[in-house]
Each structure stands twice: as C-alpha cells, then as structure tokens.
C-alpha cells in the first residue's frame, strides 16, 4: 500500500496528491510516470509524476477527474492509501542545454510539464512557458511554473485570464516576436499537441509531445498504448511517453483514446448512482 500524505483540490476537479513512494521518488527523472491502482478492484491508470522529493520519499501527482477512477480518487484523503504505485516508468526526457525552449502546457498537461521545465531550466536553458486552459481557475500550478520559467504567457478560451485564445496563437506570436526556439515541448490534450505540431512543422522547430494513452501494465507487456510514429508502431509506456511530435499520428492516438468511452460512461453513472452526496451531484451536473 502507498500512503496518501495529502490531497488538495488545487482547481475544480484537479487534485494534488502527495504520496509516500520512496523507491519511485529516488529514481524519478522528468518525463516519467507511474501506474496507479487506487484500490483492489480498481483499474491501473498512468499518471505522470509532477514532482518528487527523494529525501521525504514522496512523489506529487496531479489528477483531473474525468472518469470513475479519478472521481473516486478525488474523494480520498490524507491517511488513505493506493493499492499500488509502480515506477518510475517510461523513458525520461532528454535534457541538455538546447538554448531557448518553449514549454506549452494545456489543462492537466501542466502538471507533467513542471519537472521537465524545471530540468531544462536547471540545465541552463531559457525557458519560455505558455500555459492554457478553458478558464482562469483551470490554468493550474501557475506559481510553480513561474518559478521555473524565464517568461510565461497565459491563455484562456474564455479570456478570463491572460490572453483570450489558444496556446497555439500565443506560440505563433512568441515565435514571431522572439525568433525560433531550439525546442518546443507540448503536453496537454492530444488535440492541443497536434495543433502545436502542425504549427511548428512548417517552421522546422524541433517539437516533443508527451503522450497519454490507455495502458494496463505500463511496462511494455500488453501493447494497449501503441501508437504510430513515423509509420512505425511504438509503445508509449516504454518507447515514450515523449516522441517527436512531427512524427506522431495524432489522429490515431485520438481515436484510440476513445476505445472505452461507452464503458467509461457506464462506470461513471454507476459510481454517481452509488454516491448520493451533494458534492458529487455537483460534479455530475458540472
């Protein structure tokens, strides 16, 4: 069992967990993830590590409520425990001194961006961050990202914070104003990463995307997470999660992420029906 030391709702439906996982904390490198099995009858889900503290033996995970598993996690509190946390998995981000790097994070993708941006900054890069979300309160971890960025731009779909519009608009302006960066790292919804890749491709800006796909074991055993990169089948769990965004078939990724939508619906409804509390009704309606 892996003890939850704290859970904090940092934005609506976004929860920050500090979890006791000393072996994982000791080995974690930016870009890596863990497989979490919340309970004995739960499902194993991949979560990218947002921070780690080897001394305290803890890792930080940021979880967005999207389905039954993550909604149930949102009800956990300090003192509870996950049945299983295994990792750190995946290939760490290749970090060196590139020059200028633009970190584009959207929604839940801001959390995994945090250690990557931190690592890149520490290696001597100039880190320019563009963080986006639907509305102000969904642009998470702003203070943390500001601490590891030389400059930061915010965008919201509704214009409630930062500039109104998409992260790609901000990226286009940033490139026009400051010239081409040596590297762009994009983490967020697949559709956002695709848009970033399409924008940087004609400019020949090297672009990495960290992919989120369906996984079962997370160690290369099942192939549920497979995607197509440069026409070749790759496993996100062991070959990734980061890939050259210009080579990724995002349309395939987006389709494969929809595989279990009907089952997710069934599970969510069963969960909501069994949790009659007011807070959850709010979630269901929101």
């Amino acid at each position: 069992m892996f003890r939850v030391l704290s859970r904090e709702e940092i934005a609506p439906k976004f929860h920050r967990f500090i979890v006791h996982a000393p072996e994982v904390a000791r080995k974690h490198r930016p870009g890596q993830f863990v497989m979490v099995l919340p309970s004995e009858t739960g499902e194993r889900i991949p979560l990218t590590i947002a921070a780690s503290d080897p001394e305290a033996g803890t890792i930080t995970l940021v979880v967005q409520e999207v389905g039954k598993t993550t909604m149930a996690m949102g009800l956990m509190s300090a003192g509870d425990a996950f049945r299983s946390v295994v990792g750190p998995l995946g290939t760490p981000t290749h970090i060196e001194r590139f020059g200028t790097v633009v970190c584009v994070g959207g929604g839940a993708g801001i959390a995994p961006m945090l250690p990557i941006a931190g690592g890149l900054r520490k290696a001597g890069n100039r880190v320019l961050s563009i963080l986006g979300g639907r509305t102000q309160e969904l642009v998470i971890l702003r203070a943390e990202m500001e601490a590891v960025s030389d400059e930061i731009v915010y965008t919201t779909d509704d214009g409630s914070f930062g500039r109104k519009g998409l992260v790609t608009h901000a990226l286009a302006d940033l490139v026009a104003e400051k010239g081409k960066p040596e590297l762009v790292v994009a983490i967020g919804p697949a559709i956002m990463m695709k848009a970033v890749a399409e924008m940087t491709r004609p400019l020949a800006i090297r672009t990495l995307a960290s992919l989120n796909s369906i996984m079962v074991d997370g160690t290369g055993m099942c192939g549920a997470c497979r995607i197509s990169v440069d026409g070749k089948t790759k496993f996100v769990c062991v070959d990734g999660p980061e890939f050259d965004a210009h080579q990724v078939d995002f349309d395939l990724l987006i389709k494969r992420l929809r595989m279990y939508l009907p089952e997710e619906q069934v599970a969510r409804e069963a969960f909501l029906a069994s949790h009659e509390c007011q807070a959850l009704r709010g979630v269901a309606n929101g």
Partner: peptide, 12 residues
C-alpha cells in the same frame, strides 16, 4: 484485472 466483473471491477 477481472474485467469479466465489470462494472463491479473498474477495468473494462
């Protein structure tokens, strides 16, 4: 993951 018990177990 005992998917044959879904949705009593969470893996479909």
């Amino acid at each position: 993951m005992k998917a044959y018990n879904f949705p009593r177990t969470d893996t479909p």
